[in-house]
Write a protein that binds this DNA or RNA. Sequence first.
DNA 1: CGTATTATTGACTCCATTCAAAGATAGTGG
DNA 2: CCACTATCTTTGAATGGAGTCAATAATACG
Lengths: 237, 237
Amino acid sequence: MDRTNKDFQVSCNNCKLDSICLPRGLSLTEINELSIEVKTNGMLNKGDYIYRQGDPFSRIVALKSGSAKLVNIDNHGNEHILNVSLPGELMGFDGLYQDHYNCSAIALEKISFCILPADNLEFISKKIPSVSRELFKHCSDTINQAQQQIISTKSPAEEKLSLFLMDLSDRLHARGFSSHEFYLPLTRQEIGEHLGLTLETVSRMLKQFQNQNLISVERKLITILDADGLRSIHNEK
Amino acid sequence: MDRTNKDFQVSCNNCKLDSICLPRGLSLTEINELSIEVKTNGMLNKGDYIYRQGDPFSRIVALKSGSAKLVNIDNHGNEHILNVSLPGELMGFDGLYQDHYNCSAIALEKISFCILPADNLEFISKKIPSVSRELFKHCSDTINQAQQQIISTKSPAEEKLSLFLMDLSDRLHARGFSSHEFYLPLTRQEIGEHLGLTLETVSRMLKQFQNQNLISVERKLITILDADGLRSIHNEK
DNA sequence: CGTATTATTGACTCCATTCAAAGATAGTGG
DNA sequence: CCACTATCTTTGAATGGAGTCAATAATACG
């Protein structure tokens, strides 16, 4: 809360995520200016809320480590997982429009994160225009991801799941993690809530992929055995 | 193309959409500054492309009159209508992330529009920070709409269509049109491509709503007879 | 007026859901 | 450390909602 207490803050310079998080493409001067505006001490445990659906929009959050899910409760009381956030990704742009968040962000494991207070958005836009462009790009990224998801909801279960797995693989790879072996941050139930399937269907499809020697499944540990084969499920004409 | 040729431009001051388009909440000075950056002479006919999927990102487009559809062709060659744009709404933010548009924008009827060239985004952010915030809000609006759509794709056909109709009604009403009588800008086929249904199902559901005295359907002319009843289909617990 | 496009309607099929039951794993406290 | 419990996962069988296929009807347009 105390912005003057810089001793306990790690600047963007020192952050291992500097190339993939917000400061991508910024000059050193700009990164330093940005560091002053950003709070870097966020820490939460599994199940904790980063922000809640309906809360007043107050911050953009950059995930430094761990993963989170974005959950929306609809009019019927059903949970929808709009997206999964991985290290280096930003959350919260959905809250800007109506000044309150459209979904809850919930930690899927122990996480650390940075905070860009909402009050500073205009100030930053004026002082560091290139950050403004970066923020727009992240917004645009969110739009693209959402649109991709709209498209995938119209595919059969098999394609939804292969796309989900390869998307996770690609995003993890882009952030320096293994692309062929990773832990699912979600339960079968949650994957279903994300893809619009039942947990039973998710389980059956994972089994099917395993039978086809496309992946190996050991509870939440996924090993991609045939990335091309998996990709062809949703890519081939 | 000639930015110096201001004689043929209508400034935002004179635009009937001033309260609902970009300049919402700006001072007169800011609106004038913005007018200089915006090209206001866009005109296209039904079926014309405003921009194409894959084209380099070059502009944000504000629809002044008419309607447009945002179409994405997926890996299988299937068309998906990501959204319908109505007067006063902005298009193109999806192109910012990868520097090319993620979908094509196609006029559904004769349209007129304004253009905000992409090159000016940073300049505008610096010069008119409040515009920057407005643009972020529009981005956020797009994200919210996309997320709402993701949620609705998981609902049964009946709910998809009632939500689609009431969303259209609400958005038209917000822009000064009738909320209880309007023309569908899309064919049954296109509504299907938008909602993830077949044209036959769309036809059957419209018929069902008509039989329930919720709406009256006369080809593309929709009359809402019981808005509450229609809303309750997707709102009730 | 004739053709192409768009829309309606019916019968049948299939994919994913639902319902049900059992198995596996992780976490807790005695 | 083991038993106990809650949570998560797997698997099977039956059901149902939307898709597919097909034929006809209505409308728009040149």
